[in-house]
Design a protein around this nucleic acid. Structure first.
Length: 561
RNA sequence: GCGCCCGUAGCUCAGCUGGAUAGAGUACCUGACUACGAAUCAGGGGGUCGCACGUUCGAAUCGUGCCGGGCGCACCA
């Protein structure tokens, strides 16, 4: 509808240019907004004010000419010029309710588009190292990252979801030594406990599993514990697989899937790391100093150069990171989105600098980043900082245990990523009107229930195929719902374009409120059958859009609660 | 000190590329269920959009400078 009106306006502008009213100039794309107040109509444009200077006449006069130049159409019922020169469009009832039949025809596809045109995009998210259970921050990354994947798929992109993890290096070594200590009977408060060791309860579980020679399968690998306490390599292998398995279980419980798990070690095995270093050397991007090898990252906007190879030998973490991102480029992803915690923000410049120094043709802003800010968990008015299992942090598993998957996913993705998030356990737990996720799901369940009962009472309606006469929808509350349903495709494409899943959550909250409002005012069944059928169609379309929207967030749409 | 993010109603937050009287929810007050879900709805009070300049027809939105909070500033990842 918005697109249709936009093209009408564009035609009007062409006419005005043709007859000389408007001088030639840079193409102005009409900006059409949904109005906040129905008194201003359904859609409004500021075009006359923007173009007033170019036309050499007052905005309101130009507005009249624009309206006069609009082609004949059935879309617009009435126009008004308001305030300093806004043009307000009142959409005809038939156009308003068009969305209802569109939705009933399109079903689960409603809201989808092809703006991505099947292009490839790779989305990396979570990428937790296997040194402990996933924490709430990983949960936020999982909820947002997965919602981004769903949004991009819905808008026509070919999405590849990837999880990158470091299976070597200092932190992993700390993990292995912690498990080894525990398996040898040392407790975390003992002086012999390794420096920087991990202290969560899971270390004990891991040590016991290792001693019991258990086998685990995770990330396409099978590992069996040798039980040998002196074999640190064996412990490390087992610990990684064991923790990966636990993380996978959490992600599965969270309904988050990945197409690929990428191991840092594979970059060493394939020689990609060495090749990356060699090429940076050959390109003159590096130098030796103090026994270390440095990258001239300041050439690409970094505030200081960075060490690539340590004095003691071994590469710093960002070297394989650069090699990893080069592999994304070489795999043909012209678009890559990395979703990660804001605490890793400093790597962005480094990775991009490495890539710029490595290969021609990689755009400066590649890859894109979505950074989410910290999450604090509140319960009974106090911050929850600890969990038994992980020791120093609240785990994703804890959250799912406490409030369930739907509420966890909704709350973690319903706020803009750039804002810090307070996760209120008590709110998420409450099954009442103060809880947005239950409120939205309730609307869905309510519609399903109404529909069931209406059909049970009037079996003949079941057979009625096709869309009823929507002209029977005349109540203002109904038209507000219908208009809002018609906005859903824009909301989806906008959220996908801006990489902001929380737009969907906000939209659903408002849609559910509008529906409840309509339902309480009129109910579904009327003495007039046509009216009843039309209202049921509106309800069903609303149900479909809620289901589609919740699916984009990975939240279920229950038929009853 | 430097970089990034945030500052909007008592509280939790929307406000998209600048647009009309700054919006939701919650909390508080007043109302609404004898067929379809009251887990709901209707109405009311509540704001110096952190502060100050600037840009322009017009700023919560853009720019600069302050103030306050978070995160990051390793030859850890």
């Amino acid at each position: 509808m918005k697109e249709a009106l936009t093209s009408l306006i564009e035609k009007a502008l062409q006419l005005l240019v043709a007859d000389g009213t408007l001088s030639e100039g840079a193409d102005v794309k009409p900006q059409l907004d949904h109005t906040k107040d129905p008194i201003h109509g359904d859609l409004a444009t500021n075009l006359a004010m923007v173009l007033a200077k170019r036309a050499g006449m007052p905005p309101r006069v130009l507005a009249e000419k624009i309206i006069a130049a609009l082609p004949e159409n059935t879309l617009v019922e009435k126009t008004e010029i308001a305030g300093p020169g806004f043009i307000n469009f009142f959409i005809s009832q038939a156009s308003n309710t068009q969305a209802v039949s569109d939705i009933l025809h399109a079903g689960a596809k409603y809201g989808c588009s092809d703006v991505g045109q099947g292009r490839k995009v790779q989305v990396e998210f979570v990428s937790a190292n296997p040194t402990g259970p996933l924490h709430v921050g990983h949960g936020r990354g999982a909820a947002i990252g997965d919602a981004l994947c769903r949004l991009l798929k819905a808008t026509g992109w070919a999405v590849h979801a990837e999880f990158y993890y470091n299976d070597a290096g200092q932190q992993i070594s700390n993990l292995a030594r912690s498990v080894q200590a525990r398996a040898s009977g040392v407790s975390p408060d003992d002086a012999r406990w390794p420096d920087d060791g991990y202290r969560g309860e899971y270390i004990a579980d891991l040590a016991n599993a290792y001693l019991a020679k258990e086998s685990v399968h995770a990330a396409d690998r099978d590992v069996t514990a040798s039980g040998d306490v002196d074999d640190l390599d064996s412990i490390q292998d087992f610990a990684i697989a064991w923790l990966r398995r636990e993380q996978d279980a959490d992600l599965q419980a969270f309904a988050v899937r990945f197409d690929e798990y990428f191991l840092e070690s594979s970059l060493y095995e394939s020689g990609a790391v060495e090749q990356t270093v060699a090429k940076l050397n050959a390109n003159g991007r590096t130098y030796e100093q103090d026994g270390a090898l440095w990258l001239r990252s300041t050439e690409f906007g970094d505030d200081k150069d960075r060490v690539m190879r340590k004095r003691e030998g071994g590469y710093t973490y960002f070297v394989p990171d650069v090699a990893y991102h080069l592999s994304k480029w070489q795999r043909g992803y012209k678009r890559v989105i990395n979703e990660q915690g804001a605490d890793h923000h400093s790597t962005i410049t480094r990775v991009r600098a490495g890539l710029q120094g490595l290969e021609e043709g990689i755009p400066e802003g590649w890859p894109e980043y979505v950074l989410h800010q910290m999450v604090t968990v509140m319960r009974d008015g106090a911050e929850v900082k600890l969990s038994k299992r992980a020791g120093s942090y609240v785990t994703l598993h804890d959250l799912i245990d406490w409030v369930g998957r739907d509420a966890t996913r909704f709350f973690l993705s319903a706020r803009s990523a750039t804002s810090q998030l307070t996760f209120d356990i008590d709110l998420a737990l409450s099954q009442s009107n103060e809880n947005p996720v239950y409120y939205i799901q309730y609307a869905h369940a309510r519609i399903c229930s109404v529909h069931r009962k209406a059909l049970a009472a009037n079996p003949s309606w079941q057979a009625a195929d096709g869309i009823p006469h929507l002209s029977a929808l005349v109540e203002p509350e109904a038209l507000i719902v219908a208009l809002m349903l018609g906005r859903f495709p824009e909301v989806v494409s906008g959220a996908a374009q801006r990489l902001e899943p929380h737009d969907i959550a906000n939209y659903l909250r408002e849609l559910a409120a509008n529906f409840h409002s309509f339902y309480n005012a009129y109910k579904m069944l009327d003495e007039n059958i046509d009216v009843s059928l039309a209202r049921l169609a509106l309800a069903d379309a609303t149900r479909q859009v809620i289901a589609n929207g919740l699916d984009l967030l990975g939240v279920s749409a229950p038929e009853s609660m």
